[in-house]
Amino acid sequence: MSADVVSRTVGTRTIIELDGVRKTYATGTIAVEALRGIDATITEGEYVAIIGPSGSGKSTLMHILGCLDVPTEGRYELAGRDVSDLEETELAHIRNAEIGFVFQQFNLLPDLTALRNVALPLVYAGVGPHEREQRARRALERVGLADRADHRPGELSGGQQQRVAVARALVTEPAMILADEPTGNLDSVSSADVLALFRELHDSGRTIVLITHENDVAAQADRVLRIHDGELAS
């Protein structure tokens, strides 16, 4: 999906559909149910926060949304595709092409410039060098860091590093941006800066799902889903 065709408003196309999603972990002879029948729908262009305390199941839910794990029971569809029973190679493709990840840890490679860090997902996707550079530069421009393309992470502030991470998430034009505690390692000024960027991206039509334990961060979204003891609050 190119930037030219992204809807400017919330659309009707379903990006995320969870139907009776459960996740059970076996610890020896004990079964721990981390998710207990999650039902949720997120449509194109929405900005949704999922909030919950430690141990609530939000990290497990994030892993399933990001195709980093699969449900024990239930169905998960991403952009109309049932991902519950896909092989690992197919899940890897979805992670690279259809989901833009932004983590609390910036996960930038310290020896690469901002431009090369942003271009990495395109390398894995087999995009040629010239197109990779063009798209990476456009993504950096989109987050206001075109003039930092040749800087390495150690030469950037925490807020700038997170902006590079956002540009990397955008470069494949994914179905959604999945942000896991994206302000957790930032000071208040940088946090506000990154959240303002998410708002700009949403206003331009981007679908954003933000995982957090902070009420003030969740309040930036247009819809908040609260998870507790593996269940979404009604």
Results as ranks from 00 to 15, higher is better:
residue 225 L to H: 00
residue 20 G to P: 01
residue 151 H to I: 06
residue 28 G to R: 00
residue 18 L to W: 01
residue 55 G to W: 11
residue 76 Y to E: 12
residue 206 R to W: 00
residue 171 V to E: 14
residue 152 R to C: 11
residue 30 I to A: 03
residue 233 A to N: 00
residue 4 D to V: 13
residue 48 V to I: 10
residue 177 I to G: 05
residue 86 L to F: 01
residue 221 A to H: 02
residue 58 K to H: 08
residue 100 G to L: 04
residue 204 S to N: 01
residue 72 T to M: 03
residue 122 L to S: 05
residue 176 M to P: 04
residue 158 G to P: 08
residue 20 G to A: 06
residue 75 R to S: 15
residue 75 R to D: 13
residue 106 F to Y: 15
residue 57 G to C: 11
residue 145 L to K: 13
residue 89 T to F: 10
residue 96 N to E: 13
residue 52 G to P: 09
residue 38 I to A: 02
residue 83 V to Y: 10
residue 232 L to A: 06
residue 179 A to F: 04
residue 121 P to N: 02
residue 58 K to L: 07
residue 31 A to Y: 13
residue 179 A to N: 07
residue 36 R to D: 02
residue 91 L to M: 15
residue 112 L to I: 09
residue 2 S to R: 12
residue 180 D to H: 09
residue 171 V to A: 07
residue 103 F to H: 03
residue 41 T to G: 06
residue 127 V to E: 14
residue 187 D to Q: 04
residue 159 G to L: 01
residue 64 I to G: 04
residue 127 V to P: 09
residue 49 A to G: 10
residue 155 E to P: 04
residue 1 M to V: 12
residue 206 R to Q: 14
residue 211 I to F: 05
residue 153 P to L: 10
residue 183 T to G: 07
residue 106 F to T: 02
residue 221 A to K: 01
residue 105 Q to L: 13
residue 38 I to S: 00
residue 222 D to M: 03
residue 185 N to I: 02
residue 50 I to R: 00
residue 180 D to T: 11
residue 142 R to E: 02
residue 141 E to D: 15
residue 124 Y to A: 14
residue 167 A to D: 01
residue 187 D to A: 03
residue 7 S to Y: 06
residue 154 G to E: 11
residue 146 A to G: 11
residue 137 R to L: 13
residue 67 C to V: 07
residue 18 L to A: 11
residue 210 L to V: 14
residue 211 I to Q: 01
residue 125 A to P: 13
residue 181 E to V: 06
residue 13 R to C: 06
residue 74 G to E: 08
residue 30 I to N: 00
residue 56 S to P: 00
residue 168 R to C: 00
residue 156 L to D: 10
residue 91 L to P: 15
residue 92 A to S: 15
residue 123 V to D: 07
residue 125 A to T: 09
residue 182 P to T: 06
residue 26 A to V: 12
residue 71 P to S: 01
residue 174 P to G: 08
residue 136 A to N: 08
residue 60 T to A: 12
residue 35 L to D: 05
residue 154 G to T: 11
residue 18 L to R: 06
residue 133 E to Y: 06
residue 35 L to V: 06
residue 114 A to Q: 00
residue 181 E to T: 05
residue 176 M to D: 04
residue 152 R to F: 14
residue 41 T to M: 05
residue 217 V to N: 04
residue 136 A to Y: 08
residue 50 I to E: 03
residue 142 R to W: 08
residue 11 G to W: 14
residue 219 A to S: 10
residue 232 L to Q: 05
residue 137 R to V: 07
residue 56 S to T: 06
residue 33 E to A: 02
residue 74 G to D: 01
residue 46 E to M: 13
residue 89 T to D: 15
residue 195 L to N: 09
residue 202 H to V: 11
residue 67 C to N: 07
residue 185 N to C: 10
residue 134 Q to G: 08
residue 202 H to A: 07
residue 110 P to Q: 08
residue 142 R to S: 00
residue 16 I to D: 03
residue 104 Q to G: 14
residue 173 E to H: 15
residue 19 D to N: 11
residue 84 S to P: 09
residue 9 T to N: 12
residue 98 E to R: 13
residue 84 S to H: 11
residue 4 D to S: 15
residue 179 A to H: 02
residue 48 V to D: 02
residue 1 M to T: 11
residue 185 N to D: 08
residue 164 V to Y: 10
residue 191 S to N: 08
residue 78 L to T: 14
